[in-house]
Design a protein around this nucleic acid. Structure first.
Lengths: 144, 144
DNA sequence: TATTGTTATACTCTATAACTATA
DNA sequence: TATAGTTATAGAGTATAACAATA
């Protein structure tokens, strides 16, 4: 007789190290690049989803507000994002990506030596399809 | 005409935030547990793969040796691993999981409220299958 | 009072460089 | 000399608690 919980625990046990190690590898590969993975991710989200407040961006990225404050400060200092006080609620600022930020994202996307893009090319089409098919479920897990 | 590189870049762009956010959520959920995700992962690897040296464990976990030194020190202090000097090469120690370490892993696996296990249960069977199918490809990426 | 964001502080994770012990 | 591991040091990432400004 099948134990459903044991099966889920098995899946969790297999998934956890795969996520952790791959994230480590991706971070390490970025060590000598212009911005870190954390900053790149926040910048990409802001670009894709459009201008938003610091709190909204923190929620999107699944970090606490003080963590996002530091990430934004770095992106702002580098000239990749700017902010304007929301006239409707002066506690908030609306963040947006600058042209330099958009250029950086485009460069990252296009770059032939971007590690993850290059290594995805080493996988078989079936393996890439398997990853593509799993992304919505992984995103749903992060949301739940 | 299809640009293969652009497609890979798209996949990378979708995968990266999913990995990063899910890893953040999993780490955050462990905040009040007995050991951190990094230590749990190293302990689980040592248990599954069997006794090995510190250098081997670092390579398995995709971290540099000094990082693993600290992880091992914590696990040893907690009584979850022990080491014995390799008689054939006295520079190395062979690490192994103690009974307390094995008990902890069993407890983690069994625990009904382990976050990841619980939340995998919320996914549909098709979503879980998609994740299970992607794990080997994710592991291959981390290896490549 | 409640909400948004920041500052202050601290801990975990991880790396590189330099060193020690052994081979 | 070369290798395995540790120590020293530093930076990134992240959190909680306390605070300030605004609603």
């Amino acid at each position: 007789m099948t134990d459903a919980h044991a099966e889920l625990a098995e899946l969790a046990t297999a998934l956890r190290p795969a996520l952790l190690r791959l994230t480590r590898v991706i971070r390490a590969q970025r060590a000598d690049m212009s911005i870190t993975l954390t900053k790149l991710s926040a910048l990409a989200t802001l670009y894709q989803r459009g201008p938003m407040s610091a709190g909204e961006l923190a929620a999107q990225e699944r970090v606490q507000p003080p963590s996002m404050t530091k990430v934004i400060a770095g992106l702002e200092a580098s000239g990749y994002v700017y902010r304007e006080t929301d006239p409707a609620d002066r506690r908030q600022s609306i963040l947006a990506v600058t042209q330099a930020g958009a250029d950086l994202l485009e460069e990252e996307r296009r770059s032939r030596d971007a590690w993850l893009t290059g290594h995805l090319g080493v996988l078989t089409p079936a393996e890439r399809n398997a990853i593509a098919a799993a992304i919505p479920a992984l995103a749903k897990l992060a949301d739940s």
